[in-house]
Design a protein around this nucleic acid. Structure first.
Lengths: 167, 167
DNA sequence: GAAACAGTGTAATATTATAACATTGACTAA
DNA sequence: TTAGTCAATGTTATAATATTACACTGTTTC
């Protein structure tokens, strides 16, 4: 049912509006929490959101240098990692472990275990909120007497677009 | 139901027998498949199995040097990565993405998507085969029109042992 | 024996991530 | 105002993880 919504990533759309909305939401959330979404952090959030593909830390670093309207100065890795750490703590971005990369969170307002569908061809990743998976994970953890389970679910496959173009 | 069996990792037991069994099974499987479980590959498999904690590639490298009965010669990274690649291809070890580490597979005879419970305290990891999770993942992928889904499920929590000793 | 090949050795380097310390600017207390 | 404190960022160096490229060895195959 939410599949169609999630598939937005695969349809033509004005993605800059997605980015704007995400940044606006982030601002509001940080404001509510008394957290500072500084220009640097905001810029990193934008860059991450701008890409439908999860973005590596060093790719972000390059974009900071390249895209920057103001300062073409080369940044150092800690700059990016610190911004990403902040954004992760506030649930604004997720880290995709299987790719060592980061992606904007589509539900930053609520804490949630994150599940991802990742295309092995075009590398597009979409976040899904699937209660059935979440419940199954909870139950499995409980059955093994694991407490405070926090699941990382990364499903790699072939996305609708790439199924057409690939052998 | 399989919870008790999985919890073996948390009970006292003669783990060297687990290792022996795993290696014997690996030998048999490789034999059946016409794959060569060379001394080096076997040694890496043993080292990985010997630890209940997932082992990093460089940790394995150190153990190859340290533990080795015969040659105390320092090996280079590709040696380990190549052995691990072989073992992964044959389903004999799994990679835990969230830890950049490797662990012996408990069901090497059958292809399967692997699910793990990982203790955030003691780092012990156990593999579980949970049909409910597997089915939920399949359904989620299908709903989003993703084909050939291959799920990586890593559940971090507090294991039964560490719940007693931790705040 | 020569060719082809799998497995391993070796050197160099790429990629990802963090540690440690310096600087800046904003806010606060006196 | 001044000094103190703190969060954020800058800067340098390095750690940890992983791969590329090429050389060597021994076996199989013809």
């Amino acid at each position: 049912m939410s599949a169609r919504k999630n598939n937005l990533a695969f349809r033509d759309h004005d993605h800059s509006r997605c980015v704007d909305t995400a940044v606006a939401t982030a601002k509001r959330l940080c404001d509510e929490r008394g957290a500072k979404l500084t220009p640097l952090r905001e810029q990193v959030l934008q860059l991450v959101w701008h890409s439908h593909k999860p973005l590596g830390a060093y790719a972000i670093l390059d974009l900071l240098t390249t895209d920057s309207t103001a300062k073409p100065r080369r940044q150092a890795p800690p700059t990016v990692y610190r911004a990403l750490e902040f954004l992760q703590e506030h649930g604004l971005v997720h880290r995709i472990n299987s790719l060592n990369a980061f992606i904007g969170c589509t539900q930053p307002h609520a804490y949630h275990n994150s599940h991802f569908l990742i295309c092995r061809q075009c590398e597009t990743a979409i976040e899904i909120a699937d209660n059935t998976i979440a419940t199954a994970v909870q139950n499995a953890a409980h059955a093994a007497r694991f407490s405070e389970p926090n699941a990382c679910v990364e499903i790699t496959g072939l996305c609708p677009n790439c199924q057409r173009t690939t052998r």
